[in-house]
Amino acid sequence: MKITVVGAGNGGQALAGYLAMKGFDVALYNRSKRRISPIIDSHSIRIEGQVEGEYSVTFATTNMEEAIKGRKLIMVVVPAFAHKEIARKMAPFLEDGQIVVLNPGRTGGALEFKKVLKEEGTEKDVIIAEAQTFIFASRMSNPGVAKVFRIKNAVPVSALPATRNSELEEVLCNVMPEFNIVKNIIYTSFNNIGVVFHPATLILNSARVETTAGKFEFYFEGISPSVAKILEKIDEERCNVMKLFNVVPMTAKEWLNYAYDVTGSNLYEAIRNNVGYRGIYAPPTLNNRYILEDLPMSLVPISSFGEEYGVKTKTIDSIINLANIMMDKNFWKEGRTVKDLGLEGKSIEDILRYVEEED
């Protein structure tokens, strides 16, 4: 099978190398040449950590048409704030039968991506899907070198609409059996665990980040018992919004057991018991995807759905407001909202019908 990985950050390079290790024909695309220049020349990616070795991709390119031409599976591994741009770049070159998976979609990723393709006039028969989280805990140490701290046991994924799930499963789960097909994108979008762990932890550790350039372990030192209590409250609000769709959410503590086989009497203990987080350092600055991605593409849409359908998200809103002040931004305007996703005025039943049945 021919696979393209779109995005050559730490996740994209790790995934491209891993898929090459498994024997697939892998192409790697990045918007700028800087990160992939060494890979363009060498066709080589080195993986360290849970997986070790140096593996060859077929080619690396900054040309989207070249990157996806004739490729069955397109794995998009870019920050969610880049999904719109990637959709527009990809739209003219998509082919019937291709599968595009957002790794991950964050909250509303597949909805946004499909909406952009429609706005661009794309009429190709393409499956758009989103994963609930990224398959690896990984970091890039150098261009062409990625460290995989841990491969998650399972990652939920679904197509939009869910009627395409059997086609998605036939292709995707043969590539990586860790992917678990779930009922619909409500499960992947609102079981967004990164939104629980990332933005609030970074905001609450802002002084430490700015004075040490992130020289501390993000999960083990950045999440103290009191910080974990705030994360639990964010998780509770996320779950309450998800329950609007008459589904049982997975709590962050349950997800740690699902993805990493760890348990604890509370969220703090479960995080401390996850050796997969050992050695992962904090970002060196607040100007990082934990805020720039997770605020507008995760917290804001969860709050927006809560506001639209009468569920209060006071803790989530507080984190967004603090970030607005600290970053001199207005994430309320930048982020995905019910209106931006084309769902304003629709009932919960209308939304469920759209994600499950309509194409």
Rank of each mutant, 00 (worst) to 15 (best):
N180Y: 07
Y18H: 14
I325A: 13
E232Q: 15
N165K: 08
E210T: 10
V171I: 14
A60L: 07
D350P: 02
M21L: 12
K152A: 06
E308Q: 14
L168K: 13
T61S: 14
E130W: 07
N240S: 15
N142R: 14
V209T: 14
N273E: 13
G264V: 03
A162L: 01
D340T: 12
R272Q: 15
T133E: 13
V247W: 02
T122E: 10
G222W: 10
T337S: 14
I86E: 12
S226A: 09
Y281R: 14
I99S: 08
H43L: 05
E221V: 03
E221Y: 05
V171D: 03
T61Y: 03
I36G: 02
V175N: 09
M297R: 08
M242L: 08
Y277M: 05
L256G: 04
S138H: 03
W332T: 11
I128D: 13
A259F: 00
S166D: 15
T212H: 07
R150G: 01
V76I: 14
Y18N: 13
E95K: 08
L231N: 09
F59L: 12
S189P: 02
R353C: 00
T4N: 12
R289I: 04
P283F: 02
D25R: 09
P177K: 15
A213K: 15
K33W: 01
S206D: 04
P79F: 01
S44L: 10
F81C: 02
C239Q: 15
N103D: 13
I186T: 06
R71W: 03
V5D: 13
K314S: 13
T315P: 00
F113Q: 13
A67S: 12
K33S: 11
V77S: 14
I151S: 07
I36F: 02
H83G: 07
F190K: 14
E308N: 09
L73Q: 01
I302W: 06
V227F: 00
L292I: 10
T201P: 01
I280L: 14
T58P: 00
L256F: 01
G12M: 08
G70P: 03
M21T: 07
S303A: 15
P301W: 05
A129Y: 09
W255F: 07
E85G: 03
A16H: 04
I186L: 05
A67Q: 10
V300T: 06
V275M: 11
R88Y: 01
V148Q: 09
S166V: 08
I36P: 01
Y268I: 04
L341I: 11
T201H: 07
I193P: 00
F134M: 14
V145G: 01
I280A: 01
N273G: 04
I351A: 07
G11V: 08
I45M: 10
V5A: 12
T285E: 15
K253R: 15
E170F: 00
K215R: 15
P249V: 05
E178Y: 03
V311A: 05
E237P: 01
K329S: 11
P296Q: 02
T263G: 05
I348F: 01
F245R: 13
